[in-house]
C-alpha cells in the first residue's frame, strides 16, 4: 500500500530529507574527485653524455636541441659531449597549456 502511505506527512518529510542528502552526497563525491587530481606539469629534459668517460649532465630542453647534437666539451675529460636523450617528465606544479594562443 505505497500510495496511501505517501499521504503520511512524516514519511514525505523523511523522503525529502533523504533526497536532499543524496544530492549533497553526490555533489561532495563529484567535487572530491575534481580536487583529488594533483596539478602536474610536464617538463622536457635534455640529457647530455660524454662518450669516453660517461660523464652526464641534465638541463631543460632548449629550442634547437636534438638527440646526437654536439653541445661542447666535457668538463671532466675534455671529450665531446653529445645529447644522449630528450624526454618529458611529470613534476608537481600547475600544468602548462599545450598551445598558446
Amino acid at each position: 500500500m505505497l500510495f496511501p502511505l505517501l499521504n503520511d506527512l512524516t514519511l514525505q518529510f523523511l523522503l525529502t530529507i533523504l533526497l536532499i542528502l543524496s544530492i549533497i552526497a553526490f555533489l561532495i563525491f563529484q567535487l572530491s574527485t575534481y580536487f583529488k587530481k594533483k596539478p602536474q606539469k610536464e617538463v622536457v629534459i635534455t640529457q647530455m653524455k660524454c662518450k669516453p668517460c660517461n660523464y652526464e649532465e641534465k638541463r631543460n630542453f632548449q629550442q634547437g636541441d636534438y638527440v646526437g647534437k654536439k653541445t661542447g666539451k666535457c668538463p671532466e675529460c675534455g671529450g665531446e659531449m653529445i645529447i644522449y636523450s630528450i624526454y618529458s617528465e611529470l613534476v608537481k606544479g600547475k600544468p602548462k597549456p599545450y598551445v598558446k594562443t
Binding site: 622536457v44 629550442q63 634547437g64 636541441d65 636534438y66 638527440v67 630528450i86 624526454y87 599545450y98 598551445v99
Partner: peptide
C-alpha cells in the same frame, strides 16, 4: 592535437624509439 607541441618544438616523440 598534442602532437603539434612536439613537432613545433622538435622534441623526439614516443614513436621515435626505433630510430633512437
Amino acid at each position: 592535437f598534442s602532437s603539434l607541441k612536439a613537432f613545433s618544438e622538435g622534441h623526439p616523440i614516443g614513436d621515435g624509439v626505433g630510430p633512437l
